[in-house]
Design a protein around this nucleic acid. Structure first.
Lengths: 396, 396
DNA sequence: GAACTTTGTCCTGTAGATGGAAAAAGATGC
DNA sequence: GCATCTTTTTCCATCTACAGGACAAAGTTC
């Protein structure tokens, strides 16, 4: 069961592995250009990596005007498992060493059913992916959970929407079951890492990644590294106050961002509008499905429903208010908005942008792109794969 | 004129110099305990540092049960200049290599008089300190200015309260005049570095340092390093909105924190209260001085004036609102409050604490100290010295 | 096919790291 | 006062890592 994956012996080898992961196949000569190592040293380290089996030779590179160089790539049999546990569904993806998604499954599941039930599901999904011939075994797995995590131990701490998970040894349990290294992180942080690796945030050092799902969270990247805060709860912006005497929130306060705008709040607002007869489109959808979700609002808006559009605009304004504050404080180079509500798309984006550009100072917003995530639902799983690959591609 | 200060030749030497700076005199044996270098390597590097003159022998250490070790300390002739340019005054301090303040001068000066006039003043203050025998020359100078700075170049960018400074080559000009290396940073960042080096923030990796002066700013420290943001304007929290339809602010928006609470806003509120006859204490002070400052409010509060107390409480609530948001987002291990208004002291602190603990989630506030700065007006100058010492104590 | 480029391998000299031995300097116990 | 034990420092022989040059192999260009 247990699959022994070799680990790099030193920082140089780790560096080379990450280079190969991020740039795909590479010739020895090209790698020499990218790292400041002498040719001889580079050759030695590459040879050692070849011996361990982590990388393999991959034919000859095209000539750059002289002798052709040998190509090197990460072992094509390496497999990472990326798991994104959301509040209401689970995403599981298999990637190769370059973090390209080879297979992806999604299943609805309520996280409140507790860790045991959820992990049973996760393991069965992983088994299904394995059975379809995508992987013989996993060299590592990254797990995202919708709540704060004590990162070094991989244990959720006081997660508000995950009763029963507090202190559950996620990392240890899954490592045991899967027979490979496991790392656990907040789902929002993983989404940020996903967009950083393969999405809109490539080449940006400092950025914010805002995920709007059942709740609202924010991934913070500082100098290319995820910032998690002192107790692992950094980015918990759902309970910032946007309305001094606003709606009551589950956290006990009033006027939290999440109470006014989030997947759950949006659905509740839409249901109310439908019941009050303010929107025919929403009312008919409510009749069909029995309840409304953020996707219904998104569809209604796409159909031109003014109430749905207004709900989105109003929410964007609220979100924009908070983002404006964060931008003033953090001065990021990019703001990414993603999560389940991305379907709200450009209506939301326009509303957020207006608010931010109006409320923040020019120096901070001068050249600040505010964009939607590029990877959609895969962002979390890719980020999870990225997390564990960083771990596996570091000296033991 | 120019004073040639030696620079460490490699990272080991830099490490040792900083160790000596932060821990004062140290025996060779003690240093061996603190760095992971072999005895022989350590001896070689220390000998080289002795040769350069950056460190000197300093007698024998007390025995730890065997042969006594030789003490080593940074050259006692090393001098750093710490300059803190505020909106309305200039602080200049001379420190030794351990960043202990040997002499400190303060002069009122309006930063709006422009860089030329200000630097003339700074240079004359530096000359005065030199003349009093505290220094023969300077091995480096750190400069803090009340506005955003493009840090690598040491040039202010679009500073709102410093007309005439935009793009002025502060670093180059002062380096020329002083004949030593110079680094420039935002005054709030320097205050944070000061409190980190010698104040309440020792041994805290991630913290916020909020400075309330004429305006309001926030120094952000991530993993022991100051975070400056993409364009150097991180921490600019003065224009975060606290009141949707609040007071008009100089920035063009409404309801900015700075418009409701800052040295300037507090003074204006106090004057109004005095004129309206709501406070006898403030009215009498206004008559005497012709105008009121934050210090007057502080004094009135100390005398038990209810209006002054209420102003402070109200301001603390506003500030607390913003801090609560920042705490949720950043999850710091400590919040330091400092600046000119520190005189408001515990009334302000209590009000801020109440608001933050009420509004942020327990996980983030659970063990979060919110305290006043320890260094008072010297924090900026000490931070400035720290900044330049980091530079001088790094390989050329 | 000659001349030039690029790539990979081999080799050697040097700087740095390691760890033991021994000397220096002091503490402790009898 | 002397022998023994600690701690600190120096010295040295050894080992490893790495840079950089020389050279061979493989291609391109004219």
């Amino acid at each position: 069961m247990r699959r022994m994956t070799a680990r790099p012996e030193n920082a140089h080898q780790a560096r080379l592995l990450r280079l190969l992961r991020d740039n795909g196949s590479n010739s020895r000569a090209q790698m020499g250009d990218r790292v400041e190592l002498s040719r001889s040293k580079l050759a030695v380290e590459v040879d050692r990596l070849l011996e361990t089996g982590l990388v393999v030779a991959d034919g000859l590179a095209p000539s750059r005007g002289g002798r052709r160089s040998h190509n090197i790539r990460l072992a094509p049999t390496l497999r990472f498992l990326g798991v994104d546990i959301g509040a209401t569904s689970i995403d599981v993806a298999v990637t190769n060493a370059e973090l390209e998604v080879l297979g992806h499954l999604n299943q609805p599941m309520d996280v409140r059913e507790g860790p045991v039930a959820v992990f049973e599901q996760v393991l069965s999904m992983a088994a299904k992916l394995k059975a379809s011939g995508l992987a013989e075994g996993f060299d590592g797995a990254g797990i995202g959970v919708p709540g704060p995590v004590r990162f070094p131990e991989g244990v959720p701490v006081a997660p508000p929407i995950m009763p029963g998970w507090d202190g559950f040894p996620v990392r240890e349990a899954l490592s045991q079951e899967l027979g490979c290294p496991v790392m656990v992180d907040n789902d929002v942080n993983l989404m940020a890492m996903g967009e950083q690796h393969a999405g809109v945030a490539r080449s940006v050092g400092d950025f914010l990644c805002i995920k709007i799902g059942t709740g609202i969270g924010c991934g913070i990247v500082v100098g290319g590294e995820v910032y998690r805060g002192t107790t692992g709860s950094a980015g918990d912006i759902g309970h910032i106050q946007v309305e001094p005497a606003g709606r009551a929130c589950a956290c006990g306060n009033r006027g939290c961002l999440e109470a006014h705008f989030s997947g759950a709040a949006l659905a509740a607002d839409a249901e109310q509008a439908a019941r009050e007869g303010r929107s025919a489109v929403l009312a008919s959808r409510l009749e069909t499905a029995g309840r409304l979700t953020a996707e219904d609002v998104s569809a209604a808006a796409a159909a031109g429903d003014t109430v749905a559009l207004e709900l989105i605009r109003e929410g964007g304004k609220r979100l924009g208010q908070v983002i404006a504050g964060l931008v003033s404080f953090f001065n990021p180079g990019l703001v990414v908005i993603g999560g389940g509500v991305t379907g709200l798309g450009h209506t939301l984006l326009a509303s957020v942008r207006t608010q931010v550009y109006r409320q923040s100072l020019p120096l901070a917003t001068g050249n600040l792109p505010i964009v939607l995530g590029e990877l959609g639902p895969a962002a979390g799983a890719i980020g999870a794969a990225r997390l564990i690959s960083d771990h596996v591609f570091s000296p033991a």
